[in-house]
Structure formats: C-alpha cells, structure tokens
Design a protein around this nucleic acid. Sequence first.
DNA 1: ATAAACCCTATTTATTTTATAGACTTTATT
DNA 2: AATAAAGTCTATAAAATAAATAGGGTTTAT
Lengths: 138, 138
Amino acid sequence: MLSKKTKYALHALTYLGKHRDSKTVLIHDIAEEHGISHKFLENILLELKKAGLLGSKKGKGGGYYLIKEPKDIPLSKVIRLLDGPIALLPCVSINYYEPCAECKSEAACGIKKVMAEVRDETLKILENKTLEDILTNE
Amino acid sequence: MLSKKTKYALHALTYLGKHRDSKTVLIHDIAEEHGISHKFLENILLELKKAGLLGSKKGKGGGYYLIKEPKDIPLSKVIRLLDGPIALLPCVSINYYEPCAECKSEAACGIKKVMAEVRDETLKILENKTLEDILTNE
DNA sequence: ATAAACCCTATTTATTTTATAGACTTTATT
DNA sequence: AATAAAGTCTATAAAATAAATAGGGTTTAT
C-alpha cells in the first residue's frame, strides 16, 4: 500500500493538473479541498518541487504549479520519490538496493530471481500509467 | 516492499518445498538456516498453517510440512496473508477495502480508477508466480 | 511597512512492525 | 508413568517508521 504521503501527493498533482490554467495554486486550497493537514502537505509539495515536478512562486500571490506535462509524470516517479522502492525486496531494488541479511547466496536465491521478474513487470505498469491517465478519468 | 514476515514466510515455504521428501521439518532448522528468530518464525508458520498451506505434527518428532503443491501457492496468496492488500490504495482493495478519508467522490476519482487498473495488472503477475517458480530457480 | 505565501529543519506523536516471553498441549520414547 | 521434544496460543515489549506539528526564515506584491 502507498503511504499517505504518496496518496496526498497524487491528489495534489491531480489538483494542480486540473488547474493548469491558473498561474499558481495555494497549498491551502489543495489541503482544504481534500481535508489534508496544510503543514503535512507543505512538506510533500516541497519534495515534489525539489524533484522537478513542480515550480513555485514565493511571496504574496505565489503558489505552486505543474512544471511537467501530466503524460511525463509516471506513477513510478511519484512512488519512488515519496515511498521509496518499487521492488518487493531490497535485494532486487534498482534505486534502493540493499542485501537481505537472511540470504546466504544472492546468486542462488530463487526468491530473488522471481522477485526481479515481478519488479520488471510491475515497473512496466507503473511507468506506463501517468498523471494524464488520472486526469482523463476525473 | 514486503514485510519481513512475508519475506521469512517465503524462505520457509522454499525450505519446506525443498524438503518435501522428509516427513516433517523443524521450525528450528528453518530459523537456523536463515538466521531468523525462532519465535518470530513460529508465529509465521502458524499463520501459514491456519491458511491451509502447511500441515504440522505435534510432539516429539513433529514439525511442519507443505500441504499444497508449490504450483498452487501463488505469491499473491502469501502476500495477502501476511502483508495484507495487494492494491496500492485501500479504496481499491478487493480483500481489504476501506474508503479514503480525503476522497470526496469515489465514483469520480481518477486516482481510484487508475489504481484499480494497476491492481488488476499487478494481480495478474502475483497470481501467476508461484512457489514452484521460486523452487525451479534455487 | 505589512501581510501573504513558500522554505526549511527539527521535534513530537501515533502507528505498525518486529521480536520476545511464557505457559499450555501433544506425542514419541524410555 | 515420566520425560523431553515439539507445536499452539496469547500477550507484551521494543524498535522502527509514518504522520503530524511547530516555528522561525525568506521572498514578494501591494
């Protein structure tokens, strides 16, 4: 399951995607729309900005705006950013690799082999679905 | 990512799958092989038993054994048992459905729609991969 | 000058996961 | 019958992670 962080990020991105005509959108408006804590959302939007998905304008009249095309924001990107690995096991993660303590030989581990396949197939799905798909369903 | 519980369950099932010639296998042996806490593993095996994947024999000379064919134990089953939902959001979970607090209308939620598709495709993968696939890779 | 809004870091609180403990039951063996 | 080995069950503690809060800082329109 996705963390609330990621879920809220998706809601925020969707909201921003729907309001691309406005120059900027206030954290406050997104938070209110979904009943999310303003401060919590603030941290999330900041992360999305640092990752290059959002732009912002400071000061009075400021706010956030989408900086990328919705079709160029795959679910895989958002999930990795806020939740971490897509792989089901650390030993098979592309971006967050770590060995498994209980595994004697990674080379001979059937679980690892199968999980690498699962990862590849899952990745196909999550790279293929983008914010655009969400927006066309709203 | 999978919890350690699920990961250990997979190791245990793999171990049991490899030792189907023995009548029973001791918790102790599996725990030692993978350096897992005996007591923690005990709880996990009990769950697997209650779910009908394993059989057991009590008392001296007792232990656990696989009760199902490896090909009839899909990853989806093990994951659901120990980790819960496969879906990325509660509002889209088949076995653990819960509404999302921040969602005004589930019917009109693009995130939900897309996540339902992701769930379906993920499920295909996880129902298709079984303990047998792990065993043939060991 | 002021107020509105994002920026940044740290801390606290809540929740979940992981691990441990211990008493109970069953069964093979002597 | 006694004993020891092994699974059963429930509860609790410890650790880790996620969620939320706090508060001062910076920028900018008016």
